[in-house]
Amino acid sequence: MKNTLLLFVCTLVTQIITAQNINLQISDSETKEPIDFAIVLLPDHKKSFVSNEKGIFMIDTNKYKLPLKVIVEQFGFELQEITLQNATSVYNIFLNPATEVLQELIIPPANAKIKERTYGRTNEGSGNIQGQMNRFDNENKDSGSEFGLIIKTNDHLKRLKKVHWHINGITFKRAIFNLQFYEVENNKPTKRIPHSEINFSINENQKGWLVLNTENKDIYLDGTKKIAAILKVQKIEFRKGENEGNLLMNVGAATSNIITLRSNIYEGWESGPMNYPFYITVDSYE
């Protein structure tokens, strides 16, 4: 009898705790398809998060009390602001596609000479410091943290061909990243350059140079001698029984390209004279 009563109490407590979680389902208002890795902002708490690949994000209302202001946005869509008033299990949020053109049609100059060039740091070791470039745990794995390199290029039109990133190892199971390019002012990213989405994953066996072929995406970079190549964390999966992990890379002092990062959207970009092995290969129209 005592065991039965204890089981009933435990089940009741579990149901009460579960009821405090609100699932946001974020979808495209036109297609009704889920929007993967949408940005979820809690402005009153200065927190930013990323939904999963099915457009779902869970809010713990034990931690973030109702009523709760929530802003949902994604590149290419109009942002939407709502206030969660009660602990409904699921809130369906539909984002409207943005009216402006995301990526203008670019026609390379007909008479230009095409030269293949590389920009960034191509050396993976040699006198650099191997360290924990990023540490992830349950507090920051969904925060949408971003890090990257500010890279010196030229001022010609450039078509992105490949992206190269050297990783010494990871101590979590799997991660999904999004690569974004920004214009730069005062050594900090400013305006995002419109281009096709570049999502990719790495797993616990990843080591050495990771090469992303982007030739079929028709991504053009122009108008600045500096660009920021930013890696945004979309999702982290820890190993079974663990709740933290590290991304390992060789970090070294920089003479030109520098590291920039921020822990979430509400934090300012921090830049410093360091870099890590990362470079891009482009066709430069000269």
Rank of each mutant, 00 (worst) to 15 (best):
E33W: 00
F94V: 00
I170G: 01
A253Q: 13
T224L: 04
N154M: 04
F177E: 02
C10N: 14
K158T: 03
V101F: 05
M133K: 12
I106P: 03
I230N: 03
V233K: 02
E185R: 13
N257P: 00
V50Q: 10
I176Y: 07
T11M: 15
T88K: 15
N216E: 15
K207L: 03
E33M: 10
R174A: 09
I176D: 05
S27F: 06
I114R: 08
R159A: 06
P109T: 12
K113W: 07
N275A: 06
I193E: 09
H195L: 07
S256A: 13
I150E: 10
E78T: 12
L24F: 01
N178G: 12
K162P: 00
Q15G: 03
I265A: 11
G245K: 07
I93V: 11
L212N: 03
R262T: 07
N96D: 10
Q234D: 07
W165N: 11
K188I: 09
N111T: 13
T88I: 06
N21I: 15
H166E: 10
S29H: 00
G120F: 07
V282K: 02
T171F: 02
N123Y: 06
V101T: 14
E267V: 00
P277E: 09
I16H: 08
P43A: 02
V211T: 15
Y276L: 08
K226G: 01
L212W: 03
A87V: 11
K54Y: 09
R239L: 15
N62Y: 10
V90S: 01
L42Q: 02
N21P: 00
N138S: 08
L68K: 03
E185I: 06
E185N: 11
I259N: 11
A87G: 00
S143T: 11
N111S: 11
